[in-house]
Amino acid sequence: MYSARDHVENEQWLADIDAAGDRLDLGSAARSRAVDLFLSTVPEEERSKSASLAAALYVGALIEGDRRSQGDVAEAVGVSRLSVQQKWKDLIEEAGLRKPSW
């Protein structure tokens, strides 16, 4: 779980989630889930935050039924598709959610 302090300390990253959500035309439930996921698992290293943000957006959209491709999410955030691909499954497990069974 995260605190209000985490929200304040990551304010710019949360603005980036919102901006990428706009580019992806994501609904509010997917964005809210992405924020929760990001703040619950935010890495300490600055260089890892963009990939974590992208994975949080991808998973948030996936869980809320507002699915977008890994490539589209990566482009909206400005990371490689591989970054999303490498992080999203771990993020789902860390959050205690079940992977989709496509």
Results as ranks from 00 to 15, higher is better:
residue 69 S to D: 09
residue 34 A to N: 06
residue 38 F to A: 00
residue 46 E to F: 15
residue 99 K to E: 14
residue 66 D to N: 11
residue 32 S to H: 10
residue 91 L to C: 01
residue 89 K to M: 13
residue 54 A to D: 00
residue 90 D to K: 14
residue 75 E to A: 09
residue 54 A to Q: 00
residue 60 G to K: 03
residue 83 S to Y: 01
residue 67 R to H: 15
residue 93 E to H: 13
residue 49 K to A: 01
residue 91 L to V: 02
residue 51 A to I: 04
residue 42 V to D: 02
residue 90 D to Q: 11
residue 63 I to F: 11
residue 80 S to R: 09
residue 47 R to C: 06
residue 91 L to E: 00
residue 52 S to F: 15
residue 68 R to W: 14
residue 94 E to S: 13
residue 48 S to W: 15
residue 40 S to H: 13
residue 67 R to L: 14
residue 54 A to W: 00
residue 77 V to D: 00
residue 63 I to E: 11
residue 75 E to S: 10
residue 55 A to E: 01
residue 85 Q to K: 06
residue 44 E to T: 09
residue 35 V to D: 08
residue 80 S to F: 06
residue 32 S to L: 13
residue 82 L to W: 08
residue 93 E to P: 03
residue 65 G to H: 12
residue 61 A to Q: 04
residue 74 A to Y: 13
residue 84 V to S: 04
residue 67 R to E: 14
residue 84 V to L: 05
residue 65 G to I: 05
residue 47 R to K: 13
residue 82 L to A: 14
residue 93 E to G: 09
residue 44 E to C: 08
residue 45 E to A: 14
residue 42 V to H: 04
residue 40 S to V: 02
residue 70 Q to C: 08
residue 79 V to T: 12
residue 73 V to T: 03
residue 63 I to R: 13
residue 89 K to H: 15
residue 96 G to H: 15
residue 93 E to S: 08
residue 93 E to R: 14
residue 45 E to V: 04
residue 79 V to L: 07
residue 49 K to Q: 06
residue 80 S to H: 12
residue 46 E to Y: 13
residue 81 R to A: 06
residue 48 S to G: 07
residue 95 A to R: 10
residue 49 K to I: 01
residue 92 I to N: 11
residue 83 S to W: 02
residue 45 E to W: 15
residue 52 S to K: 09
residue 85 Q to I: 00
residue 50 S to W: 04
residue 33 R to C: 06
residue 76 A to F: 04
residue 72 D to R: 13
residue 40 S to M: 12
residue 67 R to N: 15
residue 94 E to I: 08
residue 57 L to E: 03
residue 68 R to T: 05
residue 48 S to T: 06
residue 46 E to C: 03
residue 72 D to G: 12
residue 60 G to Q: 06
residue 41 T to W: 11
residue 45 E to M: 10
residue 68 R to I: 03
residue 81 R to C: 01
residue 53 L to G: 03
residue 39 L to Q: 05
residue 97 L to D: 10
residue 32 S to M: 07
residue 75 E to C: 05
residue 64 E to M: 04
residue 52 S to R: 10
residue 68 R to C: 08
residue 59 V to R: 12
residue 79 V to C: 06
residue 65 G to N: 12
residue 68 R to V: 07
residue 92 I to Q: 10
residue 84 V to R: 01
residue 93 E to A: 15
residue 78 G to N: 06
residue 84 V to W: 02
